[in-house]
Design a protein around this nucleic acid. Structure first.
Lengths: 226, 226
DNA sequence: CACGTATTTTCGGCACACCGAAATTATAGA
DNA sequence: TCTATAATTTCGGTGTGCCGAAAATACGTG
């Protein structure tokens, strides 16, 4: 019954990766419009493509509703995330890229390198399980370490913990956070949440600074540093 | 008058590269059918695409005749050859690929890596001017060292000289030649040309072996070793 | 529950790059 | 020179992935 797994197009790989990524840290399935926004495409294009993904057995789609990956789709997504994150790690470790510079290059290379090449760089890096932004790198067999973490924006007042992940979605934000001194494993304490959707005051080392909503939704804190 | 140089598609890059390569070691301009054969495409597709190259100012085309590059086309071709050959060199030097294994990977990566990345690997390699097959690597400014060399198949009886280039077109042939002991700078002597399109007998080190036409057309010898 | 608004899908179209079949042009031999 | 054959181009058509406009559907509010 099972079709010979045709090689996926670059577009297919991107869709599947974005669909999976959306549920990686927050479990509601993604909708067409969000998917369209993340991919920078018109919603109509996404509807069409999602139908093709469904036809290929990679996703299921409730009309006017959510898009979900099948097991096969999830496997492809994990494969792509492994590629993306290994390449990002490698660019930082071996080429001196800053963490806010790696995304675009990785976005292209993840579709281009062979498995042989990818596993060669994995070997060079010592088979890391986390990338420079703290994202877990799936293993070649598809298994992933999912660190449990809370979104900084959702952390209660007084919560303290190490930064375990910073979203790489917006390079400018990443650069800003880097300039402010945030890094993986920096310990951050939630000081105060200003009312009416205001900024979130946090302590980083000896400094206290206010983060806007976007920034507070880009970082995850792990269990309190012991 | 000069159009903003639009970014070339991967297909465009391949066409231009093949057109240039054809005249790199032998100066007759390429025809549609040869171009089609090299690209593995139908002749009709090539005719169409060549028209687009001409419209883009990259090539000129005499109907039913030759395809030639413009200055701009040549510049793009050199840029692609630089990419291809630097990547091949890098795969051999840094990843332990054999010279018969690099071609396909380079073929994909040459379209994918950024200039920044490419120049980073060029730096790591010490800005080499020759790739593992002896092909000259164009500099970033488009200049090339053209070693003067004679095709083994065209060398007169008794000619002796170092191998300065081995075509990377056919990996199987490359592997065969490697197994027989041919490498860059191996000194080869033309012993005898068997009549009626027969094999070419050559001496390599202490061994004498017969090469078929295809092999004899894949290697170039430099000026006699002094 | 009904209606207006927001989301999603359908539909016609487009650009790119490819193909095979048929028509055209070039060329080499008689 | 004429013609058969080979090379090249034209033409209609395909698949992929994208778009905007218009139609369909879902949903919150009164």
């Amino acid at each position: 019954m099972q079709e010979r797994a045709a090689i996926a197009s670059s577009a297919t790989e991107d869709y599947v990766k974005v669909i999976y990524s959306h549920t990686e840290w927050q479990p509601e399935p993604i909708t067409s419009s969000v998917l369209a926004a993340r991919l920078g495409l018109a919603p109509s294009s996404v509807t069409e493509m999602v139908k093709k993904l469904a036809a290929a057995g990679l996703a299921t789609h409730v009309p006017y509703g959510a898009v979900t990956l099948t097991g096969e789709g999830r496997a492809l997504a994990l494969r792509m995330l492994r590629r993306h994150r290994l390449i990002e790690t490698w660019l930082v470790e071996s080429f001196g890229y800053r963490w806010d510079e790696v995304h675009d290059e990785a976005e292209v290379l993840e579709h281009a390198v062979s498995d042989r090449f990818l596993e060669a760089i994995a070997g060079k890096l010592g088979h890391p399980l986390r990338d420079p932004h703290g994202d877990p790198i799936p293993r070649a067999d598809g298994s992933v370490e999912q660190p449990d973490a809370v979104l900084l924006a959702d952390a209660p007042d007084g919560f303290a913990g190490p930064v375990v992940r910073i979203s790489d979605r917006d390079p400018a934000l990443l650069q800003y956070l880097g300039d402010e001194g945030f890094a993986l494993d920096s310990v951050v304490t939630v000081v105060e949440r200003r009312p009416f959707g205001g900024a979130l005051a946090v302590r980083l080392g000896s400094a206290t600074l206010d983060l806007g909503d976007e920034a507070a939704r880009a970082m995850w804190l792990g269990a309190s540093a012991s």
